[in-house]
């Protein structure tokens, strides 16, 4: 049964990667929506550049989460799909529109009014989807997903996730994504002015993260799981919270003093600590009050084969990812290359 715990950990790790990479793509879309002022166009260009080559690859992490859930913990996948049917369906619309609009915008650049519409769709979808994702997570941790027998439609399929707590987690997720994106962009852009812009955005988002995390913490006590109590009283919970706080302070300090590489590293750790703190708070429950890791795990043979598959897959993936980042991130795109790819993308001579 230890394999089940290992695979639950891997699932969480994949979700963590999705938040750090895919989440930042969503966050970039949020800044695209909010870009204002004299440098708005350049900010948008920097955002598109940052997403460019890594696009979609970042979003495969969520597929890995889904696939691991349904092969290793089928009842959890089935239960969540029923209880969270509505927010997941809405989230899918957001995922579809974000992914396709981003590509369409890149390839429709001969026609700028149309292109603007794609930009709009891209950024609105990027803003709404994280809130829905957060609502799903909020509903899950709050322990409200028990599916009452014989409840009304609203009691069964709406009330469990349409709660102040879940909404707070939704907005927390949105601000975390925006925060990550802004922090990454401070490292990626070269121009001083843009860097300052993104630094200001990162600091603003950091404040939002704090506000929504605090709100969620206060509301958490009133959830069926009495979450806040769990978050603070379990033996190892305090270190997790302290770690999150310490990284948060480091990130803000680094941003204030303009040490961007440090800020990026500690932002990554801060968000990861936040997520693992949540995982720890509900461990070993997968759906609090319904399934634990052990009660939901698939037969041992499946877990074993998936583990072998994961190792095999990692042997292909890790070098590929390494190569991708090496090609694109080592040396920042020079102005020449940017023009060059842009020209190639539009197909104009």
């Amino acid at each position: 049964m230890t394999l089940a715990y290992f695979l639950a950990g891997v699932t969480m790790l994949a979700l963590n990667a999705y938040v750090l990479l895919g989440g930042a793509d969503f966050g970039a879309g949020v800044w695209d929506l909010l870009a204002r002022g004299p440098r708005a166009a350049r900010q948008r260009a920097a955002i598109e550049d940052g997403i460019g080559p890594i696009w979609e690859a970042n979003h495969v992490w969520v597929i890995l989460v889904v696939v691991l859930l349904f092969s290793c913990f089928p009842p959890v996948y089935a239960h969540l799909s029923v209880a969270l049917h509505i927010p997941i369906s809405l989230m899918l619309v957001g995922i579809v529109l974000r992914g396709s609009a981003f590509t369409f915008r890149a390839y429709d650049s001969t026609n700028s009014p149309v292109q603007k519409h794609w930009g709009r769709i891209f950024s609105i979808a990027s803003t709404v989807t994280p809130v829905l994702l957060g609502i799903c997570v909020g509903a899950l941790v709050s322990g409200a997903l028990k599916l009452p027998v014989g409840g009304t439609f609203a009691e069964t399929y709406v009330m469990p996730w349409f709660t102040p707590f879940a909404l707070a987690v939704g907005f927390l997720t949105l601000s975390v994504f925006a925060f990550l994106a802004a922090v990454y962009l401070t490292v990626e852009v070269q121009e001083h002015e843009l860097q300052e812009d993104f630094r200001r955005m990162a600091l603003g988002a950091a404040v939002a993260v704090g506000v929504f995390a605090g709100t969620a913490l206060i509301l958490g006590e009133s959830t069926p799981m009495r979450l806040t109590g769990n978050l603070l009283t379990r033996s190892w919970a305090i270190p997790f919270q302290l770690m999150t706080a310490a990284f948060a302070i480091t990130t803000i300090g680094a941003l204030v003093t303009r040490r961007y590489t440090l800020a990026r590293a500690s932002a990554v750790l801060q968000v990861s600590a936040l997520m693992w703190g949540w995982a720890y708070a509900q461990f070993p429950a997968m759906i609090p009050g319904v399934h634990t890791i052990e009660s939901a795990a698939a037969p041992h043979i499946t877990l074993k084969l998936v583990t072998i598959g994961l190792c095999g897959g990692a042997m292909v993936l890790v070098p590929s990812l390494w190569y991708l980042f090496k090609v694109f991130k080592a040396e920042p795109a020079s102005a020449f290359e940017r023009v060059d790819t842009a020209e190639y993308r539009t197909g104009k001579d």
Partner: peptide, 20 residues
């Protein structure tokens, strides 16, 4: 899920490699 999850997991990796 437990029976045919395997090809789906492997498929996930193949997609990933393709996207990269």
């Amino acid at each position: 899920g437990a029976i045919i999850g395997m090809p789906f997991s492997l498929e996930g990796f193949a997609f990933f490699t393709e996207a990269i």
